[in-house]
Design a protein around this nucleic acid. Sequence first.
DNA 1: GCCGTAAGAGACGCAACGTCTCCTAAGGAG
DNA 2: CTCCTTAGGAGACGTTGCGTCTCTTACGGC
Lengths: 186, 186
Amino acid sequence: MPGETTRRRGAALEADLLDAAWAELEAVGYARLTMEGVAARARTGKQVLYRRWSNRAELVIAAMRQRTGSIADRVPDTGSLRGDVLEVLRAGAGRQRQIGPDTLHGLLAEARDVDPSFFGIMRGVLRTAVERAAERGEIPTADLPRRVLTLPADLLRHEILLSREPVTEDTLEEIVDDVFLPLVHR
Amino acid sequence: MPGETTRRRGAALEADLLDAAWAELEAVGYARLTMEGVAARARTGKQVLYRRWSNRAELVIAAMRQRTGSIADRVPDTGSLRGDVLEVLRAGAGRQRQIGPDTLHGLLAEARDVDPSFFGIMRGVLRTAVERAAERGEIPTADLPRRVLTLPADLLRHEILLSREPVTEDTLEEIVDDVFLPLVHR
DNA sequence: GCCGTAAGAGACGCAACGTCTCCTAAGGAG
DNA sequence: CTCCTTAGGAGACGTTGCGTCTCTTACGGC
């Protein structure tokens, strides 16, 4: 096999490393993911990993970024606030299904600086959805208390962190219909 | 020194072990707490720990239980729903201050079965508070959607898990005044 | 075609794990 | 009071993964 002496470099190698990290994550889970395991899977040495990321958490976060591009920036537009918010939550729940609660718990415990943009992304999207609903006259005002605006995202996150089971569609609807919409309609 | 040959046993020893675990937790934090460290602090061997708890998480949970008795069962009665709920949240926030987010994150990541009673305690207390408010005629009905009832506790928990800073009184008031009470009043 | 950079490979010392073994104090049974 | 079972105290042991380090060698820009 000719690939035998081929030595990967730069971006190509980095992509392979992140792929290997992701594969290892799926294979053994975050708790038992080791730098040596990832290195072995990528058929390289640990040093190559440490040259780029200084610990498990950083490596895994990088791998996740590569895999699950940014959710944000794509504001849904279903015509109703309810539909928009549900859509945002579905996107968040979907991302959770990809990542899994164990990884989230692990990162929370190990990452010194969980980049807020990692958990706080949904806020801007929700603000836009609410503003558009107000413009349509669907709700009285877009001027909500900060905590109300982040409420759907916060509750979803809470659910993800504590449930260990994938979040169901029913749960998302409860969040929207029992909590968020009643607060906004007035 | 005569204490030198005294060998502790049973419950007395167990209490010493849990004290040592708690002290170690305060001294080095959950991330760097080790079984060997706890054993050394308790002036005994690891085996004595492993005979009782099969890992860090179990040991620490036991230590916490001994230290911070049960919050529940003591339903505040301030005369107003607002006061009662705030009081419950303050108790929860206080417990957090004792324990610290790092320990919580660690347990979440390591404990296979985070006993729901550990995180879900506040629910029953809130139910009682709401029922009494309804009896007083302060609110129209005590028949709230499940998710609304657990809302204050859920939001506090979310805050605790993601903020890393102690939860402030302001935050508690936001939860109650901007989110919970508006939902209940109607 | 030369040469600096970084990949590939693995040895190293260290810290904790969880298991084990050995000895001996404690304290109940008779 | 003595015997005997139980469990505490102490530490050795093999293992795993960490993070660092060293060495050789391929790559690819100049």
